[in-house]
């Protein structure tokens, strides 16, 4: 009887492949899990776990040889985050951002405005202006290491020829950070240019047309049409450049190794020396936690801007 029933049921649906609804849902969820598994595994191993571990490491103080560590609770956080050394490093990083971000933004905007014209051969200029985006921090640093060289550097040659005193760029505590900043501005210029040019291209042509019809001159159009419409892009660029400044490492490592007199010892370089030169993992971790919160704040600001952008787009 039972068998007959089963056969009867099967024959009723013989021509079609049946799959129950609940099964289909479950299969879909499982399939999603399979697709997400590689990313989840990698993010867990190389982002979330180490983030928690960094917080945890901050609770342990290493002995001077980096061989063992003892639990000290928040003491180390308090020591490190309250130390002059850390404050100086933070100050240096802030100064570095101040040197690089506004200048880089203005130069990038200038280049983008220049390149946002319909002229023949513009594609070549645009390629040149964006070229530093493809330049690595190592390549850029070594180039500028030569340019800034006190004896053979072209920059000092220029200074001498125009009657200025040559400067020991990377060796002088006063000039080292500006020199590193100069390199960084050049390095970031391609990115800033690309982002701002793309922003310019999203401004509807009609706005300029109607401003022209209203009799606005080029300068007035720049300040009344272009810049206001561009402000979300500019804010985005500021945040990204600031985050970049706080994460800078390569140019410091190649140009100054944090010196002279710690004047270029930015926060990531400080983490690197504490963690991998002095074997003070706990100290490095505590600084890492501070960096995390700084970048987190900047990222959240960035998300806010991106959200607001939504209203401008489409």
């Amino acid at each position: 009887m039972r068998d007959a029933g089963l056969i009867g049921e099967a024959s009723a649906t013989s021509s079609l492949r049946v799959r129950t609804r609940r099964n289909a849902r479950l299969r879909e969820a499982l399939f999603a899990l399979v697709l997400l598994a590689p990313s989840i595994a990698l993010f867990s191993t190389f982002a979330f776990y180490p983030l928690i571990k960094t917080f945890y490491l901050g609770f342990f103080r290493s002995d001077p040889f980096g061989l063992s560590a003892s639990y000290v609770g928040f003491d180390q956080y308090i020591d490190v985050l309250g130390s002059d050394r850390f404050h100086r490093s933070l100050f240096t990083t802030g100064l570095f951002a101040l040197f690089t971000v506004p200048t880089g933004l203005v130069l990038g905007l200038g280049l983008a405005l220049l390149a946002h014209q319909k002229l023949r051969g513009m594609i070549i200029y645009r390629t040149i202006f964006s070229s530093t985006v493809a330049t690595s921090v190592a390549v850029a640093s070594v180039m500028w290491l030569t340019l800034l060289n006190p004896s053979i550097g072209i920059i000092n040659y220029g200074l001498k020829e125009t009657g200025f005193e040559p400067i020991n760029w990377l060796g002088d505590p006063e000039w080292a950070l500006p020199a590193v900043s100069l390199t960084t501005i050049w390095l970031n210029l391609g990115f800033t240019f690309i982002v701002i040019l793309a922003g310019l291209q999203t401004i509807p042509e009609e706005l300029h047309e109607s401003a022209k019809v209203d009799g606005a001159g080029a300068v007035s159009r720049l300040f009344n049409v272009t810049l206001p419409m561009l402000s979300p892009t500019l804010l985005f660029s500021v945040v990204v450049l600031t985050i970049n400044a706080f994460q800078s490492f390569g140019q410091i490592d190649l140009l100054t190794q944090g010196g002279p007199l710690d004047r270029t010892n930015v926060i990531v370089y400080s983490i690197y020396t504490e963690g991998f030169r002095n074997f003070n993992e706990g100290v490095a971790a505590a600084q890492g936690v501070a960096l995390f919160f700084i970048v987190l704040t900047l990222t959240l600001i960035q998300f806010r801007f991106l959200e607001r952008r939504g209203f401008y787009g489409n």
């Binding site: 009723a12 649906t13 021509s15 079609l16 492949r17 049946v18 799959r19 609804r21 289909a24």
Partner: peptide
Amino acid sequence: EEPTSGEIIIGDDVVNDVEAKNRD
């Protein structure tokens, strides 16, 4: 789409649980 309730029949078969590609 899946019906919230009721039956969809094609030929002699209830096809509620048959995927689109298999409904011929």
